[in-house]
């Protein structure tokens, strides 16, 4: 079943450029990039229970690193991708050491502080990053010498990475390690008394989350060809947090839905009005008050209600079968 769904997704993404206009491909690419970004934050927020308000720092680190490597070293995707991911990985290693010392509100504030440090560094360090003007003149990415000048190529690169990451994260969160993270979200005290050094787990989750956030930043430079300091600003951290929460934190498909909804809405709304933040705020508040479990949570709840009595719940089935035998 899982393989089938995955296969269908591969086919759909593979075929998309053949029946979608390039505008829509571009939109889809943006959604996938931000979906990766949201998925990476979800590891922290949804699965480990650590609400970060500084995730844009990693997005920005990956994006700027990829841009600068593209300018000064090589525009080869393999180089920029590895370089960008490595930079965000190292950043997460360092920032994580500090952030793991605190919990809850203090974690939120500390991640915010670090991301603002990165932001002010990028904003004020004009010689390297272009400061408030942003980083311009990033060369078109190339793969094995072939220039990826067409959006379709960028789309394919993004789609492949998205599918790999989606599958990978799905396995990760269901692995014994991933279950420990969920346990920490639920009740860290208990996990400690079970014999888990929870700080290390939180640290690893933080580093994975930051590294993948950086990866989405790298993809964003391919897609956008330009990086502005606003991509590192805390409103960016806020937006990705909104995507995760609106979609459904702690689920796999939720953040993807959230990213899709936000990107599509922003694109549609932009043609009518520039009051985008107002609308986003209204939608977000609506979800916070009325649908705190997010889009996917609502969908799950309603289908479960609808299916009740028709299909036995899969989880229960397993143990019951054993009991009979």
């Amino acid at each position: 079943m899982t393989y089938l769904k995955f296969g269908i997704a591969v086919l759909l993404f593979g075929a998309a450029p053949f029946f979608l206009a390039s505008f829509h491909i571009s939109l889809l690419t943006e959604i996938l990039i931000l979906a990766i970004f949201a998925l990476s934050l979800n590891i922290l927020v949804g699965y480990t229970g650590l609400v970060s308000l500084g995730h844009a720092a990693f997005f920005g680190a990956g994006a700027y690193a990829a841009g600068l490597i593209g300018q000064h070293v090589s525009a080869e995707i393999i180089t920029t991708l590895l370089g960008g991911v490595l930079v965000s990985f190292m950043l997460a290693l360092v920032v994580g050491i500090f952030c793991m010392k605190v919990n809850g509100f203090y974690f939120l504030m500390l991640t915010l502080a670090f991301s603002q440090m990165i932001y002010s560094f990028i904003y004020q360090s004009t010689t390297w990053t272009g400061g408030s003007n942003g980083l311009t003149g990033i060369p078109t990415p190339s793969l094995l010498g072939l220039e990826l000048s067409n959006i379709v190529w960028v789309f394919y690169v993004t789609a492949i990475l998205f599918l790999l990451l989606y599958a990978g994260i799905s396995i990760f969160v269901k692995s014994p390690f991933g279950r420990v993270l969920v346990g920490i979200k639920e009740n860290e005290t208990r996990l400690k008394s079970m014999g888990y050094n929870t700080k290390i787990y939180r640290y690893v989750a933080f580093v994975i989350s930051g590294t993948l956030g950086g990866l989405s930043g790298v993809l964003f430079t391919y897609f956008n060809g330009f990086i502005a300091p606003t991509n590192v600003y805390w409103t960016m951290s806020g937006t990705v947090l909104i995507m995760v929460l609106i979609g459904g934190a702690g689920t796999m498909i939720g953040p993807v839905l959230g990213a899709a909804l936000i990107v599509i809405l922003e694109t549609v709304i932009a043609t009518y009005t520039d009051m985008w933040m107002l609308l986003l705020g209204v939608i977000f508040i609506f979800f916070v008050i009325f649908l705190p479990e997010g889009i996917y949570g609502v969908w799950q709840r309603s289908t479960r209600k609808w299916l009740k009595g028709k299909i036995p719940q899969p989880e229960l089935k397993k143990v019951d079968r054993e009991k009979v035998s």
């Binding site: 990978g168 396995i171 990760f172 269901k174 692995s175 014994p176 390690f177 991933g178 279950r179 420990v180 346990g183 996990l191 079970m194 014999g195 888990y196 397993k318 143990v319």
Partner: peptide
């Protein structure tokens, strides 16, 4: 079951297995 498995998986040396789905 999930509560219990978290306890048991550490004893089974699986606490750092991160790329294999935990199922029966």
């Amino acid at each position: 079951l999930d509560n219990l498995l978290l306890v048991l998986q550490r004893k089974h040396g699986l606490k750092n297995t991160w790329f294999r789905v935990r199922n029966e």
